[in-house]
């Protein structure tokens, strides 16, 4: 009875911390874009626009005035679920995000799934066997993938699969579900390679640590069956660091996939964000960063929670 309470209290505490982080992400995103150089009005009117015209537009867009009052009106709008409209073309920020976010999420979720399918067997097998030659080859190969920039791997992929064999489109996207895989499989594959290199390495080192632990020996001597042994004595005690890392990486990938989106010309949210920053499109930048922040915080909350449920030694 008491134990259940303790667990709930821990989870609630962790959740409150997540919310407070999300709040500070919102504040920071508001401040940062305003500190950065650039002016939305002059960006919208283009180079060589008259000063007077810029001033008029600035007034129209409510860009003048006290930043603190601006912040409070931003928060006020936010509470009412209003992220504002783009300063460049007047499109609702929510619509922009709804259009571009799913593409990026698809990319991240698919590559995470593939990376797990690839890394778990490889990482555990090599960690458990501990064979010198195998470990050497594994370390070398993953080091190569980690040292190579993802756009380079992406371009080699395009040259091979798109240009030479025409198995993948060079650019474009289709929003409906099975069709979009046609456009996504190559970027997903590239991302999977890099992600698996990281994840399998972490899992490898956890498993090679776990296997020398005394309780593993006890399990062998107890005569635990193969499947049970694999889950309860190898994978489960080793998985927590991987889960935490993965949840964190999935969050940072939201922004980091901009490179892949650019190389493969995918209309994802990363590209949208870069465009908005370049034109000082405050509401769009704020909106996207807020989404990123909340998603990242939520993911790491879920990651910590799963890690804790797997292994009670983890602190949350």
């Amino acid at each position: 009875m008491q134990k259940g309470n303790q667990l709930t209290r821990k989870i609630i505490g962790r959740f409150l911390r997540a919310i407070s982080v999300a709040f500070w992400v919102m504040v920071l995103s508001f401040v940062m874009i305003r500190v950065a150089p650039g002016d939305p009005a002059s960006a919208r009117l283009g180079p060589g626009a008259e000063k007077a015209a810029i001033e008029v537009l600035r007034k129209q867009l409510h860009l003048g005035g006290n930043p603190i009052t601006q912040f409070f009106s931003y928060v006020n709008e936010l509470i009412h679920g209003n992220l504002g409209v783009s300063l460049q073309d007047g499109v609702k920020v929510v619509d922009i995000i709804n259009r571009t976010l799913p593409i990026t999420i698809y990319l991240i979720l698919l590559s995470t799934l593939c990376a797990l399918i690839v890394s778990i067997p490889i990482g555990t097998y090599i960690g458990w066997s501990g064979k010198g030659s195998l470990v050497y080859g594994f370390r070398g190969l993953t080091a190569i993938f980690l040292a190579t920039p993802n756009f380079f791997i992406a371009m080699v992929g395009i040259l091979f699969f798109s240009v030479r064999h025409n198995w993948a489109p060079v650019f474009g996207y289709d929003n409906s579900f099975p069709q979009n895989l046609h456009y996504l499989w190559l970027p997903v594959a590239v991302n999977t390679i890099i992600l698996s290199s990281v994840i399998s390495r972490v899992l490898f080192s956890s498993v090679s640590e776990t296997k020398d632990e005394e309780f593993v020996e006890t399990g062998i001597i107890r005569g635990v069956g193969r499947r049970r042994f694999f889950w309860f004595y190898i994978l489960k005690p080793s998985l927590a660091p991987t889960v935490v890392l993965l949840s964190y990486m999935m969050g940072t990938m939201l922004g980091a996939t901009v490179i892949l989106e650019t190389v493969f010309s995918l209309p994802g949210i990363g590209r949208e964000l870069v465009g908005a920053v370049l034109t000082s499109d405050y509401p769009v930048v704020q909106g996207i960063l807020l989404y990123f922040g909340v998603i990242t915080v939520l993911l790491s909350f879920i990651g910590d929670l799963i890690a804790y449920l797997l292994d009670r030694r983890v602190k949350i």
Binding site: E213, E214, F215, E217, T218, G219, I220, I221, R222, G223, V224, F232, Y233, K236, P237, L310, D311, R312, R313
Partner: peptide, 24 residues
């Protein structure tokens, strides 16, 4: 071995190093 281990020979590990499985 699988007939012997755990069934006919029980094993108590070093107390300083180990103990029960931490994830069970």
């Amino acid at each position: 071995w699988s007939e012997i281990r755990g069934k006919q020979i029980g094993y108590v590990p070093q107390s300083a190093l180990a103990g029960p499985n931490p994830v069970m």
